[in-house]
Nucleic acid binder design. Structure first.
Lengths: 345, 345
DNA sequence: TATTAGCACTCTCTTTGAACGAGTGCTAAC
DNA sequence: GTTAGCACTCGTTCAAAGAGAGTGCTAATA
């Protein structure tokens, strides 16, 4: 479809614009070693590329700028991986150095480091607690009418909920409840928990334990509270360094988007494994006009447990970011498998 | 010190500038009903006020703008409380309507609402967990070499820490440990916990329980991890609406300040009760040049347990914010006392 | 004596137009 | 097929000019 020369010119134009943020002119391009053509030739090719929709002009006599389609083509067909230097790999590995067992710490630090390496803002989704399994359930009464339910998962995560105790229940009732739940619900996935709890409640009712029924009812209510995904940001303000966000209005809308990113379906809950790139309007959000999001997922074995996102202008260094995310996600997968399988096994 | 007329002119100038963000001129002032003087008179008075340091000019022939000293004087001597409308009070009360028992929810919502009411950014410090008391301590082993320690406080807050189990310890050892700790440390303040745990460890050692000693050592280590204050933001982007933050550089530095506010001593850990106002450089931070912070503390009984901060430009509506914070903090104090005393009693 | 009107002056902001530079499209020459 | 040349377009920068808002000072006024 594109001639080799067009390919070259598109590539160099995109690279140059990513680098300088300035529209690329034909004269300027022809000065580069990689481009052994005269400005006039380049102009002709650029005109063709523009006609095909890969390049755009900001005004009649300006240089060219890659269009969204141009970036897309570049990303799909011309993206050679960038070599990640040893020192950068070392920096990534340093995340796991401290023998941290707390996955939250690891994720937090990962977000920081990937942001430092890319100079873009990163957002990481915390491990999806709903995929953890119940290890131990317990209840601590606080007063005569309230108690806190605690669930420890096999990964060491602790969830807790306050719930109220109906009148006339005593410690012994609660003791029985704890036992009932631990008997039946250990090993259950957290996302199955509300349903399973419901089932246990029903069972209790059938066995004529009518008394306990109220207690279970109250607990059920507390447990159904939705869990909001926890997100960790790295270099939240990096995005403001990009010249395209020099406008406060633009900056505000992107910051706002970032603050609500966990409520946006499809950003993190990827169906596909691996790395995904959304350019400009592909994000389906006006606030993200001019922004690209690159997401990578990592997992334990075949199961995908989390994802990383990098936010930048469409004029983003896709090559570098993709390569870095590649290293990062596979390292994360490996290390988390070690840590969590250790616990599970 | 100031004549009544000067006082009036200062007041009106401050109010007008707070409202419009434009330098206030003599002609403009003389048009107002409250100011029955000619522009020339006003000019004379303004010149005097400038000489005294209460007003400033942005350039030789501009109108006047309150100086930091001007705001300070206004705040200290001329701040009449603003009446808070019934509907606003209703809005504040709505925080407590849902019979939430989870203090975190209450604080989160408070941050939102105070920000909505003021149109400034709010920051709230979560209840200081170190002032809670241990209600129950427990340990859940995750694998042969790790376990999670869980502390439930009298307020229903749950703290947890992963720690590693040295070799050759069994469930029975851990059982003994839990019992030892629960025997001695229930009722202890969380901030005393590390020291108390240390004491228990020593005691264990003296009683020739040398074996358990290692286990305690590992736990101690995990428990000393510093607790970072949890902060909740309301309307984080409100500050960007203010014209003084139209500059991205300025916006970045204030956002950065906000992100690290919990590491700044003296913002939240007030010694004084009540409402405090820091204007511009009184915040001791270059990033906060041109910003004011108003903090209010709330508490349970005599004990101060948390605080609210409102961030805005120095050109902030002090009158309104102070009045709102007043209502808010006393409401919070009252409701939290109800909830937490309920548990403690 | 306190207040005000009048006036010259200052400074910012906006508009205007000219000069400049970078880039384009087209045509003709290579 | 490629390139040199040329007229043209558009954005940017700069200086000058004018408008507008405000000031300080002085003299007139109540």
């Amino acid at each position: 479809m594109l001639t080799n020369r067009q390919l070259l010119i598109l590539q160099v134009t995109v690279d140059d614009f990513i680098d300088t943020a300035q529209p690329v002119g034909s004269r300027q391009l022809s000065k580069k070693e990689e481009v052994p053509f005269s400005p006039a030739t380049i102009r002709n090719e650029m005109a063709d590329l523009e006609e095909m929709g890969f390049l755009e002009k900001t005004h009649t006599s300006s240089g060219r700028v890659p269009s969204q389609k141009g970036y897309r083509y570049n990303v799909d067909n011309m993206l050679t991986p960038q070599r990640i230097s040893q020192s950068e790999i070392k920096q990534i590995r340093s995340i796991f150095e401290e023998r941290k067992v707390e996955t939250e710490q690891i994720i937090r630090k990962s977000a920081e480091i990937i942001s430092e390496l890319t100079n873009y803002t990163s957002i990481m989704l915390g491990l999806d607690v709903r995929k953890h399994r119940v290890k131990r359930f317990s209840i601590v009464p606080l007063s005569s009418d309230s108690a806190v339910a605690i669930i420890v998962t096999d990964s060491g995560h602790v969830e807790n909920r306050l719930f109220s105790i109906p009148e006339n229940f005593q410690a012994s009732d609660i003791e029985r409840m704890i036992n009932l739940i631990n008997e039946r619900l250990v090993g259950v996935y957290l996302h199955e928990l509300p349903a399973m709890l419901e089932a246990v409640t029903l069972n209790v009712l059938q066995q004529n334990n009518g008394r306990l029924n109220h207690l279970f009812g109250s607990l059920n209510q507390a447990m159904t509270i939705e869990h909001e995904d926890k997100v960790y940001y790295g270099g939240k303000l990096q995005i403001l360094n990009q010249p395209e966000f020099n406008d406060v209005e633009k900056a505000r809308s992107i910051m706002n988007w970032m603050d609500h990113v966990n409520q946006i379906p499809g950003i993190f809950h990827l169906d596909k494994k691996g790395i995904q790139i959304r350019i400009g309007s592909e994000n389906n959000d006006l606030a993200m006009e001019g922004c690209s999001v690159i997401t990578a997922s990592y997992g334990i074995g075949e199961e995908q447990v989390g994802s990383i996102a990098i936010i930048g202008p469409t004029r983003m260094d896709y090559r570098r970011v993709v390569s870095l995310l590649d290293v990062m996600s596979s390292d994360l997968s490996r290390e988390l498998s070690k840590i969590l399988h250790g616990h599970q096994g």
